[in-house]
Design a protein around this nucleic acid. Structure first.
Lengths: 214, 214
DNA sequence: ACAAAAGTGTTGAGAGTACACCCATGC
DNA sequence: GCATGGGTGTACTCTCAACACTTTTGT
């Protein structure tokens, strides 16, 4: 028996947050858990992950990568169930939360304030967070958490939330610009009672790895 | 149906090499493949990998890490079989090759001269190689390929074989020593017709990650 | 005028890279 | 004496980290 579970990170309310569902079925009925389910016959592994996400969020194209396979003999009281965990990233505004047939509720929780979780899902989320913190050092995946245009302040905030620490503004800007993966767009963000910010977009949203990123 | 397959790298004949078995059973009978097999009920995933390795090499304690889970619908002609691939490392001299009940032969092949392989095992080996090349940059796993004492020339050779390129001797020595993970042993390697080499051992063989290694 | 985020350069320290010669031994 | 790998230091470049003030807007 093989399942796919997905750790979908997003940014909400100035926090790094994760999507959870409240389980309708047993075991752990009524408890919060990662979205996931059995892989169907003839279904590609990654497709099962996307299918589960789409049921809960309406979103079908997000950044997705295989994280790790958890197969501890005792992780599921029903018996030996192996789960292939996926890491997903999406900007908050494209999601429409909607409890599907296997959930009574869906919500997004900041990672520093998670409810009690079913199975070994807490461990899976911790593992995903480590992967994310490393991955944004040498790839451009953090773009998956941002809208298509954004200010330098906003992208810096994403890094700060993921690493949980403050970064120097001048050094951050120097580095992110020297990478050559951003382009200015002609618009600025104004209307706030502060100096308008130059907006940027990524030259490409294709996944790229870079030698020593941050 | 879930299997575990193992990519065991070692150094043999001044080459980076991988352990393969010649399959006794169908499908791909008589073809070379990675050692592996079905995970038993109630068996931990990593244990299945070690069990398979032990059958073929007699070696039970080697460096082992989960690599990736391959589940392409068409990867096995018998039907949907998901395999959890493992990366293993061991020094050549501790292995005693011995074809077990599911193999008619066992051998070690240099990675630049592999025979045709069953299933998607070529892809799995390529994936493992990428992981290994990255991993030795920021961890001490390369120690798993060396005997317990070795000269600086020998450890440099391991890095060169894995990366497939020559490294500067002085810079390599400076760095590896500055990491502070090696200790001199009192012995030297002599008896060759050349200047005797100071031998070293690792202070610890415990897996450790280091910020920017090489 | 004030609050709030945007924007901008320099300096010092440490790491990385390139590079060439002598040493100890066995045959 | 020669072949073989062992052993050693310096100079340059580049990257990283620390650090503070002015600008533009809305209220």
């Amino acid at each position: 028996m093989v399942t796919a579970d997905v750790v979908l990170f997003t940014i909400e309310g100035q926090k790094l947050a994760v999507l959870l569902i409240k389980r309708k079925g047993k075991p752990f009925q009524g408890m919060w858990a990662l979205p996931g389910g059995f892989i169907r016959m003839g279904e590609e592994l990654g497709h099962a992950a996307i299918r589960e996400l789409k049921e809960e969020t309406g979103v079908g194209s997000v950044y997705l990568e295989q994280l790790y396979t958890f197969g501890g003999v005792k992780r599921d009281p029903r018996g030996r169930i192996v789960t292939i965990a996926y890491l997903a990233l999406a900007p908050r505004h494209i999601m429409r939360l909607n409890a599907s047939y296997d959930a009574v509720d869906v919500d997004i929780f900041p990672i520093d304030n998670l409810p009690p979780l079913a199975f070994d899902h807490k461990k899976i989320i911790e593992y995903a967070l480590i992967r994310l913190r490393n991955k944004i050092q040498y790839t451009n995946v953090a773009w998956s958490l941002l809208p298509s245009v954004f200010s330098l302040g906003e992208i810096q905030k994403v890094y700060e939330l993921i690493w949980g620490k403050h970064l120097d503004k001048r050094n951050f800007r120097k580095k992110i610009i020297s990478l050559g993966i951003l382009k200015k767009v002609s618009a600025v963000r104004s209307g706030l009672r502060q100096r308008p910010a130059q907006l940027f977009a990524f030259k490409t949203k294709k996944y790229t790895e870079l030698r020593r990123f941050f």
